[in-house]
Amino acid sequence: MSTLAQYRRRAPFYDLELAPFEPLRRSAIASLELRPGQRVLDLGCGTGLSLAGLLQQVGPRGHVIAIEQCPEMLERARQRVAAHGWRNVSLLAAGVAEAPLSGRCDAALFHFTHDILQQPQALQHVAAHLKPGAALAATGLVWAPPWAVLSNLFVLGAALHSMASLAGLDRPWAGLLELSGELDLRYHCLGAVYQATGRMP
């Protein structure tokens, strides 16, 4: 089953699957240190679970550009936006590398978006639409140390359930590091989940 097909199938219960990791989402959003009026990219936004937190930071004068290529996921994000009456959210149905972006943003969030982080073209496209000094935050699965067998069994199962390939799981943030030059790395869930934060040069 392709990754897109997996996400199409998971859309109805995706929010429940990600619920245990909501504290990490909130931490990643907080690390962006957004200010009212700023513009932020939500890459691979899924069902829009990050939108409320991002909008709380940028306020009514700010803007969130959310990108998602899975139609079923994006439809749920649209329903979320409509239910809250958010007028400063743009939802783009596209892969990140092809998304029709314009202007430059103040920050970018990659929350459990391993496949996007492994695509150099996608990262270069994002970088071209970020301001100098823009904040970066990424969270996702990572291989734990070899002795952490249970952690790695979890990573393996979750990765097979959500990723196109296991490639890059040893250093999933490597592409982001090339863009920023420096990242702060923290580990959670017994080493199975990382959080990387940094800024564009």
Rank of each mutant, 00 (worst) to 15 (best):
G37P: 08
L4S: 11
M1Y: 05
N152W: 05
L51R: 10
L32R: 07
S31L: 09
G53P: 10
G85C: 06
H129P: 05
H114T: 03
V81D: 07
A77H: 13
L176P: 04
D15F: 05
R8G: 15
L32D: 03
D170L: 07
Q69D: 13
R9F: 10
R76F: 03
L18K: 15
A82E: 14
S27C: 10
P23M: 09
G175L: 11
Q195S: 04
L43R: 02
D42G: 12
D42M: 12
A127P: 02
A11N: 11
Y7R: 13
E68R: 03
K131E: 14
L169P: 03
G175K: 13
E75Y: 08
G181K: 08
T139N: 02
A5S: 14
L123K: 06
L169A: 07
W143G: 01
Q124I: 06
L141N: 04
A107K: 07
P12K: 10
P145A: 12
Q57I: 01
R199C: 06
A108C: 10
I29H: 04
Q69R: 15
Y7N: 09
L190G: 00
E178F: 05
N88G: 08
G157A: 14
N88F: 06
A138G: 06
A97C: 05
P145N: 04
A135Q: 14
V149A: 13
L141K: 09
H111T: 02
L169D: 05
S90H: 01
G181C: 12
A148V: 01
L74I: 10
M200W: 02
V193Y: 02
G95H: 13
Q124F: 13
A167N: 12
Y187T: 03
L49W: 02
R80D: 11
A52C: 01
Y194V: 03
T113Y: 08
I65H: 09
G133E: 04
Y187P: 01
A77T: 13
A5M: 11
M163C: 14
L123A: 07
G46V: 12
G191V: 01
F110M: 05
W86D: 09
A164R: 15
L34P: 09
A127M: 04
Y7E: 11
P146I: 06
G103W: 07
A11I: 13
P20G: 00
L43P: 00
R78L: 12
E75F: 11
R186G: 14
G181F: 08
L141C: 04
L150P: 00
L92P: 01
G46H: 11
P120Y: 07
